[in-house]
């Protein structure tokens, strides 16, 4: 099962390497990863997507916590968080497909951020499910390039992390 995990870490040299080498060294998967400082710039927030059964997730959680620079680990898979992801998609847009692309963009409340005579580049944000859905529709029209950020997640209400 897929899990989205936030890891709050000391914003220090080499911390990302420690986190990623923990995953590779122990054979855990990372499906996506994003990192940036939090409101407190001494702390960085890593959001990553991983998979595994309950026992593996328990180990991932404990192993992350064991890293000296890790301050807190939050698993949002229980629905305690809201997830959003952004995708930049370049699609073929010629003749009749131009209108179809625009319709899809409109339905998904996405944006066109670059236009050429033969292509549109789209910015879409939303839950990973929504991103998957728009990609399903765009693919048959000729998807040229895709960049996804992977999800970031934030706790609902009082859940999550302050800062």
């Amino acid at each position: 099962m897929k899990h989205t995990i936030s890891v709050l870490v000391e914003n220090e040299f080499g911390v990302l390497a420690r986190v990623s080498s923990l995953f590779s060294g122990r054979g855990f998967n990372i499906d996506s990863l994003s990192v940036a400082p939090t409101n407190d710039e001494t702390i960085s927030r890593i959001t990553l997507e991983t998979r595994g059964d309950e026992q593996i997730l328990e180990q991932i959680n404990k192993q992350l916590n064991k890293l000296i620079d890790v301050i807190k680990v939050i698993d949002f898979t229980d629905g305690s968080g809201v997830e959003r992801e952004m995708a930049l998609v370049k699609v073929t847009a010629e003749d009749e497909s131009r209108a179809e692309v625009l319709r899809i963009v409109d339905i998904f409340r996405a944006k066109i951020i670059d236009v050429t005579p033969r292509s549109y580049t789209i910015e879409a944000t939303g839950s990973p499910v929504k991103i998957n859905a728009i990609l399903e529709l765009l693919r048959p029209l000729g998807l040229k390039e895709l960049v996804r950020t992977g999800p970031v997640a934030i706790g609902r209400g009082s859940k999550g992390w302050k800062g």
Binding site: F13, G14, A17, R18, S21, G25, I68
Partner: peptide
């Protein structure tokens, strides 16, 4: 050496 020993140290520091 920090990279080489990352998997076999409890922690490491580069003093800058």
């Amino acid at each position: 050496i920090i990279g080489i020993t990352r998997p076999c140290t409890k922690h490491s520091f580069l003093v800058r």
